[in-house]
Amino acid sequence: MIRLNRLCAGYFGKTVIQEVTMEFLPGKVTVLLGPNGSGKSTLLKASLGLLPLTGGEVLYDDVDIRRLKRRQIAQKAAFLTQSRNTPSIQALRMVLHGRFPYLTYPRHYGGQDYAIARGAMDATGSRQHENTNVSLLSGGQRQGVYLAMALAQDTRTLFMDEPTTYLDIGRQFHMMRTARSLAREGKAVVLVLHDICLALREADRVAVLQEGRLLCLGEPDAIYQSGALEQVFGVGVHRVDTPHGMQYYCVPQQVPGRIAEECQNT
């Protein structure tokens, strides 16, 4: 399990994340919410050791991340990045590279690696693109291949940075279903989402970030009740009980400052 303890991190000497303490529980889908620039992506990258820490610690099974090699980190946590390259490579070959952290000299992928890679492609529904060049796939299909590569890493924790942002609604729901089923298998699944409603409906735990600090962390219902989302995003969040379960929706909130501005304009 990965724990953050008073974590501070940032870019080029500028601290973005301040004193965040939380843990990513196995078997749970944890969603990070927060406005643009609140440090969600930075938190993910710092948790993966992709950014230097400026304070605090990241603990992988109680071992400080600074004492782990890249390969060791890669065996414990996988990462689906937000922006992705379009390499010119056969899809199966790319998914096989998910086994890279387990290779020892002379670094040849064996039968077991192929089986795991194909299984991961089955799980993300990208098996039919096995022999296709990744650069010829659509954005959604390519994301499936990238996710398959992350799954082939066979880690206890999976981080995904805005995995639903560029997907159509059907694929968004499919992505969340995949996240849920991975959590059921015992993985800790950590997502950054921009869709508050999707997060409240699908997450087990929601963490709300504001200006690099962890404002609150809890079950969706508790976060909804707390009013933290209204405060952070400046919108009204409501819900209705429907035959399809609790559905959340957002409405614009009249901000005092904005009203004054509008009065001046008229």
Partner: peptide, 19 residues
């Protein structure tokens, strides 16, 4: 093999365990 992984972008390459 390392070049294949490098072509996936720096963050992805590092999260796959490549220095």
């Amino acid at each position: 093999q390392q070049m294949d992984i490098l072509a996936l972008g720096s963050d992805t390459a590092q999260s796959l365990g490549l220095s």
